[in-house]
Design a protein around this nucleic acid. Structure first.
Length: 431
RNA sequence: UCCUCGGUAGCUCAAUUGGCAGAGCAAGCGGCUGUUAACCGCUGGGUUGCAGGUUCAAGUCCUGCCCGGGGAGCCA
């Protein structure tokens, strides 16, 4: 007798197996009962007949409640009527842990009800599917970047003093001093790039913004690659190749989950092939005005502007050369047009907004010093960062890719809070 | 911080002009030999977010407060 996983049950047809898992659903009549068992890898229908089990065991089977943990034994057979194509004819079963009044019934629930029960909600089919895709997205990112010669060098989570103003930073007490949770590994990545060439960090970022939209979390994950001796063009190519690879890998591994459980239009993902269309900021302004939007040159795009623009294309698009004022102090200005920075955002299709932000960093010490001054930033905490321009400055560029926003786009989730196991929101930190 | 929508049974929601607070699901009991969020019958289940006000009468109208959803700003 073997104990395979439900995902691999097809290799055990006509054999006797024992499975352990949880009761997802149970239904039946006086003579026969159908129990849907899930074990984390999949689900299988287990069939128990009164004639096979006897009165007492059959009654016990009927008494099993939703999400009780059980051990079941029986013969596996192919069955077209069963969900998944296989079923298990029960010969015996045992209750391991009872579950009384499981709160999340197989019906509709609102977010206000589900979020405080996230620890249980994870067991649901859609949540299980989304987080499975997330794991594949993360693995694909590591695989792609390492294959491209990037070294994984992580940035710290605790950071000293205020870097870009304290309003959006979480402050923590650090042995009598103040420290802040990292908003980005960007600056540290630049130091790492000077040491290792091509690097990336992967970890959580924290924003204390009081934003409560479906695109925001207070704790989110991002991957940030940074390349030495690379320009804006290199960054654009890296970003589109990475996204193409990730989309293809997710389709390869989870086509069934996407089309079935998540009801995602997979044709939209098949269209994600490089190169992506490129739109210069000037052109974006023209396109927005053409679409009837009142947009002034110089500012960042609003969520609605991004949606209007991305709806004009069938795949992600590069929006590049933002005005210097609209971007961070370390962005390099375009030598051909100093009003614009060598920056790029990638907007996901279907109006899902920004998933990538990046570009070429300035390698000019004097310009960087002037920028710090202009942005009213303190000099002292940036001395180490200025050192990178003092000791062998080098052109370099990179970007940050938001994991939850990417997963939301790929899986077709409306809200990114479903795209992280335990979302941290302005009004929700439990469980 | 601002704008906007909402809070009624365990869950999802209804309740006409201010006039007996309801349905489906869940739960409990019963029925059914292949179910697909199974189905059929019966039963139990309410401080209508909180406080006050108007009225013969308030889920409904008025005032204040609390909590939440969505959006803006900001960003990944």
């Amino acid at each position: 007798m073997t104990q395979p996983s439900i995902a691999g049950i097809g290799a055990h047809v006509d054999r006797e197996v024992t499975l352990r898992g949880w009761v997802y659903n149970s239904r039946g009549s006086r003579q026969v009962r159908f129990l849907i068992l899930r074990d984390g890898t999949g689900m299988i229908q287990c069939v128990g007949g009164l004639a096979d089990l006897g009165e007492e065991r059959f009654a016990a089977l009927a008494a099993l409640t939703q999400e009780s943990s059980v051990s079941v034994s029986g013969r596996v057979r192919t069955e077209a009527r069963a969900p998944g194509g296989y079923e298990l004819i029960l010969s015996d079963f045992a209750l391991l842990g009872a579950s009384e009044d499981y709160p999340i019934t197989p019906k509709e629930h609102g977010i206000e009800f589900l979020l405080p029960r996230r620890h249980l909600w994870l067991r649901s089919r859609k949540q299980h599917a989304v987080l499975t895709v997330r794991a594949t997205v993360i693995a694909a990112i590591h695989e792609f970047l390492q294959r491209e010669g990037f070294l994984h060098v992580d940035a710290p989570i605790f950071t000293p003093s205020a870097v870009e103003g304290t309003t959006t930073l979480f402050e923590v007490e650090y042995f009598g001093d103040k420290a802040y949770l990292s908003q980005s590994g960007q600056l540290y990545n630049e130091a790492a790039a000077a040491a290792f060439g091509k690097v990336y960090c992967f970890g959580p970022s924290f924003r204390a913004e009081k934003s409560k939209t479906r695109r925001h979390l207070t704790e989110f994950w991002q991957v940030e690659p940074e390349m030495a001796f690379a320009d804006l063009e290199d960054t654009i190519v890296l970003a589109e190749n990475l996204l193409e690879f990730v989309a293809a890998r997710v389709l390869e591994r989870h086509r069934g989950l996407l089309a079935g459980v998540l009801e995602r239009d997979v044709a939209k993902l098949e269209a994600v092939t490089a190169p992506f269309p490129r739109v210069h900021y000037d052109e974006a302004v023209a396109r927005l005005r053409e679409a009837g939007r009142d947009f002034a040159w110089g500012g960042d795009l609003g969520a609605e502007d991004e949606a209007v623009l991305s709806e004009q294309f069938d795949r992600p698009l590069h929006l590049h050369h933002f005005p210097v004022e609209a971007k961070a102090f370390y962005m390099a200005p375009d030598p051909q047009d100093p009003r614009c920075s060598l920056s790029v955002d990638v907007l996901a299709p279907e109006g899902r907004g920004e998933i990538v932000g990046g570009g070429q960093r300035t390698d000019d010490l004097a310009f960087l010093e002037a920028q710090l001054e202009k942005h009213g930033l303190p000099r002292e905490p940036y001395e180490w960062y200025l050192d990178l321009r003092r000791y062998g400055t080098f052109p370099h560029s990179g970007f940050g890719l938001g994991i939850e926003r990417t997963v939301a786009w790929l899986t077709g989730r409306r809200h990114i809070r479903e795209c992280i196991p335990f979302p941290r929101l302005m009004r929700s930190i439990s469980p």
